[in-house]
Simulated scan of single mutants.
Amino acid sequence: MPNKTISVPDDVVPIIESLHVPFSRWVTDQLRRHAAKSTMSFADQLIADAALAAPEGLVPPDAFEVGERMERSAPW
């Protein structure tokens, strides 16, 4: 997988340095922990968000399929 670059504010750099682990490893661990705690799939989360945002709670009929496709293509 190619390396990704992110920009952080200057005041965050000391916090990153105090972790005493490579920042990329810390981010990866945090994302894995978050994914393990998540009880809903990404597709289900998208449907729930769409239901909240849609007028009168209406969700397009293909929304679940779109969410599943996005979940399958996600890099994580």
Rank of each mutant, 00 (worst) to 15 (best):
S18V: 01
V13L: 10
A36T: 05
P14F: 07
A36M: 01
D10G: 08
L31F: 04
L58Q: 13
G57E: 05
R25A: 00
R33P: 00
W76N: 01
R69C: 03
A43F: 00
E56K: 14
K4D: 06
E71H: 05
F42H: 10
S41E: 02
L52N: 05
R33G: 08
R69T: 14
D62R: 12
D11Y: 14
D10E: 15
D49H: 01
L58G: 00
V21P: 00
K37D: 14
P14I: 11
F23E: 03
N3E: 14
H20Q: 15
S38A: 13
F42Y: 15
G57I: 05
I15P: 00
F23K: 04
P61C: 03
S18K: 11
L46T: 03
E65N: 10
A53Y: 01
L46W: 04
E68A: 10
L46V: 11
P61A: 14
V27Q: 05
M1A: 09
P61V: 12
P9Q: 12
D11V: 07
P75A: 07
V27G: 01
V27F: 08
W26R: 06
L52A: 10
F23T: 02
A43P: 07
M40E: 10
F42S: 08
S73F: 02
I16L: 11
D29C: 02
V66Q: 11
W26S: 01
V27R: 10
D62Y: 11
D62A: 12
D49M: 06
E17N: 13
A53H: 04
V8Y: 07
M70A: 12
P22D: 12
M1T: 08
V59Q: 03
D10H: 12
V12S: 07
G57L: 05
E17R: 15
L46K: 04
P75V: 09
I47F: 06
I15C: 04
A50N: 02
F64A: 13
R72F: 10
A74M: 09
V66M: 07
M40C: 05
T28L: 04
M1P: 08
D44I: 00
N3S: 08
L52C: 03
R25M: 01
A35R: 13
A54W: 15
T5D: 02
W26P: 00
V8I: 15
D29H: 06
P61D: 13
W26L: 01
L31K: 04
L19R: 11
V59W: 08
S41V: 01
P22V: 08
R25Q: 06
T28G: 01
P14Y: 11
V12Y: 15
E68N: 07
W26T: 00
L46C: 10
